[in-house]
Design a protein around this nucleic acid. Sequence first.
RNA 1: GGCCCCAUCGUCUAGCCUGGUCAGGACGUCUGCUUCUCAGGCAGAAAACACCGGUUCAAAUCCGGUUGGGGCUACCA
Length: 433
Amino acid sequence: MVRVRFAPSPTGYLHIGGARTALFNWMYAQAQGGRFILRIEDTDKARSKPEYLDEILDSMRWLGLNWDELYKQSERFDLYRQYAQKLLDEGKAYKDGEAVLLKMPEKQIKIDDLIRDEITIDTSQIKDQVLLKSDGSPAYSFACVVDDALMQISCVIRGEDHISNTPKQIVIYEALGFNLPKFAHLPLILDDERARLSKRVGAVAVSDYRRQGFLPEAMVNYLMLLGWSPGDNKEKIGLPQAVKKFSIKRINKAGAVFSMDKLKWLNGQYIKEMDDARLALLVTPFLKEKGWDPKAAGKDLPAGQAGLASIIHLFKLRMSTLADFLDWADFIFNDDVSYDEDARTEHLSKNMVREFNLLADRLNAGADFNATTAEEAFRSLVKELGIEAGALVHPVRVALTGRAVGPGLFDTMAVLGKDRTVNRLRCAFREVL
RNA sequence: GGCCCCAUCGUCUAGCCUGGUCAGGACGUCUGCUUCUCAGGCAGAAAACACCGGUUCAAAUCCGGUUGGGGCUACCA
């Protein structure tokens, strides 16, 4: 029975490196029909915080990495003390003050790593290891070995930064008479400088990405591609498919640089393919946080199309994160339109009061107001005035949205509704006059 | 410093195990087409086997070394 574990320490938020380690463990368990265990390594009472634990659990759930068993090391101190006493009794460990240290035997340790093959280390490089600290709490390696053995972990999959801990731990396994698990050391996720990803380069917590509007499926998809590939030139791959193709042997040895560009692209792919209604649901919390009323959105649209989903449909192809919607749709939720200076200079510096008023009159006069009727009114006016459509389209877009870029002009008008469209056209040059 | 790990386009990678295809795909970049703008879509371009030596008829692929990068070196996990 395959049993793997992810063992975060609640001394900080769930890091994307940690999330990827959890993901590979999870995928391996799924692929092998095994169990995925979550073990909270909260032996450092001073640094462990309940809010970090909540955040880690929350992020794990958000990513869809459900666990089969959950343990906390802080509830197992008796166990560690018991095994330390055993080593003391057998003369394999000794006391130094209140602390218990393991005697390091002189020997060659061979790690059989699933990803890197054999790694050999001479223990003469390693000091005697602290098993129990002076305050009675277990040291990391000791608690880790006792737990991995007792929890019958069959394969320890963790970051490459743990390679040098492995020989120390193997010595502990041997001293305790436990069977060794298999080991697999994952390459690290690197920053632009090829150093281990750290806070100074921006967001590292899974919750940060969630807040920025990344989708869990995109996050998981991107993370699994860092150091692993399904091997079929597919970039977009869901968890079930990935599990089918997953193999530890195919994990790379070299570190992988994190690319925000590719993550955004992938997230955009998921957004693009998601249906409007579901997207509307996901965007809603972002609107609320901004103080915008999701129900007010698109109320001016023709019956049947009214609602947030129709608006999202307009911006979907332009969004790479859920939060991008906020920038695009600002002009819909705010009547006090903020103008992009460059756009204004380029498209509204020429006085077009006459054209704008004529257009406003035509739009106002029509019985039905929707994208089609707005376009008909617009086209016929442009024809009568004998000007290029573009000469009026761009200024009008800036007047309505504050920006020179955006969805089709007539869809934009429909979303705003007749009254607001007409109003903004009439007010556009007010400051100038 | 010592020990350990690693090395294909700028980035993520396929290919390496079982030497022999113009070294394939994706992100990003650039160009063209579509178009009221942007985005999207479509078509295309530039872009890599770190270096040296060995084995071999033949090396990205096997071996050794060099260089470069990373990790660890806590009574933190």
